[in-house]
């Protein structure tokens, strides 16, 4: 009689030995397939991220793309020129707001507009190379710092705004940037209000409030003419009632 137990063990070893090459090949194939899927997926994601970045770059205003050429000019001059340039552009294409260069730089140094990493890099570089312009911006800053009396409430509001900015950086929601623009406007920080209105407009140029905050901020920054021109253009495009009212107020001097 056989030693069945031993025979079963020998049979089991034989089967394992027999199937081992197949198991190895199958396992290797599965690993290979998973790796290929992973690599393909990563490449797809990488490509889609790159294409998004490219889209962002393309959508950026001219002021963003060519900042160095006009660095030596004053903030006022630059902003005027840019808006003029923008006016020319908008005649051909859709109506969008263009930022003044100095505000964009300011925006970058304040890390408000750092939702794009490349912008942060550019701003740092800019600060190193051109300290003078930074100074000019700093000179303007005191406007937003009003009095010590409202400091406590301002800090809380600033904290709120920073929270919203953080959220905006994550999701690029124009409602958030518009909220920030309004908040800054209320706080009297018209430069930031201007910039966030501009960012909102970049994301969606159909939002009426972004145009209004933009124009209001320009008026507050003593750019009444630019504000009138911008609003006129917008009204021509959108026939917005609110914009017309604001334009009339600016022209008549009710809104200063």
């Amino acid at each position: 009689m056989h030693n069945i137990h031993e025979l079963e063990q020998r049979w089991f070893k034989y089967k394992v030995k027999l199937l081992l090459p197949y198991i190895i090949v199958i396992t290797f194939s599965i690993i290979l397939v998973i790796t290929l899927i992973f690599i393909t997926d990563s490449q797809y994601k990488y490509n889609s991220i790159n294409s998004n970045d490219q889209d962002k770059i393309i959508n950026k205003p001219i002021a963003d793309v060519e900042p160095k050429k006009e660095i030596k000019q004053t903030i006022v001059k630059k902003s005027e020129e840019k808006i003029i340039v923008n006016e020319k552009d908008t005649q051909a294409a859709k109506l969008t707001l263009s930022p003044s260069l100095d505000f964009m730089k300011k925006l970058k140094t304040d890390s408000v507009n750092s939702y794009d990493n490349t912008d942060v890099y550019v701003s740092e570089k800019f600060i190193e190379e051109k300290p003078k312009t930074t100074k000019v911006i700093k000179n303007i800053k005191p406007k937003k710092v009003t009095s010590k009396k409202i400091n406590i409430s301002t800090r809380e509001t600033q904290n709120d705004i920073q929270q919203v900015i953080k959220r905006f950086k994550k999701n690029n929601n124009p409602a958030l940037s518009l909220f920030v623009a309004k908040k800054y406007y209320k706080l009297g920080d018209y430069e930031k209000a201007y910039n966030f209105a501009l960012i909102t407009n970049e994301i969606n140029n159909e939002i009426e409030q972004s145009w209004i905050i933009f124009a209001k901020s320009l008026v507050k920054l003593k750019k009444k003419d630019l504000a009138i021109r911008t609003l006129t253009k917008y009204i021509r495009h959108s026939h917005s009632g609110n914009a017309k009212v604001l334009l009339d107020d600016i022209k008549s001097g009710k809104f200063k």
Binding site: H2, L7, E8, R10, W11
Partner: peptide, 8 residues
Amino acid sequence: IIEMAAIH
């Protein structure tokens, strides 16, 4: 069992 017999 055939394989076991063959081993045996």
